[in-house]
Amino acid sequence: MKRGLTFVKLVNPCSGEGAMYLFDIYLQKLFEIKVFKEKCHSWFINQSVQSDGHLHFATPMDPLFLVLHYLIKADKEGKFQPLDQVVVDDIFPNCILLLKLPELERLLHHVTEEKEINSRKYYKYNKEKTLKWLEKKVMHTSAALKTNNINVGARVQSAYFSGDQVSSDKEEDYIRYAHGLISDYIPKELSDDLSKYLKLPAPS
């Protein structure tokens, strides 16, 4: 592969629809593209006007969320498979770029069982390991919310946060908010399981 930065459309692991990502082929890193959009905004850029007031963000993305989407799909067959047979997509064929990320093999053990046969690796989705991995993510994110002084209470709602509204900033509120952030990257069913795993009370 040549050096370069390439925007591609890949699956959104939460919704299953298309979303934009940025690959740094040289650094072999994946970035997610999010767009800030709000009604009634436009830009002046030097001596021109740009009608939409959009602001795009490219932020580092954990590729495991995307691979997890394919692992869960492949798990319906219930067998160990090599990764290049798991990450297959007719609608988003650029998913093969994921297989080029060097850190991926190190990360896979968080969410799979693996077997090695004739020096080829075979993987199978493991829900218990995945929930443990997601719990660590939630705890880490919850800590980041605190250190960044993000108000997880009801008054503040930023562009992307779909976390449930709560009235005061308690420990449980941070965890619930972090759970909401992580849930944007996993299927609804897994998000519900994670909620039970974290023993979060159902939102009233």
Partner: peptide, 8 residues
């Protein structure tokens, strides 16, 4: 968002 994304 970028700071939170880094944590997630």
């Amino acid at each position: 968002w970028p700071r939170l994304a880094a944590a997630v």
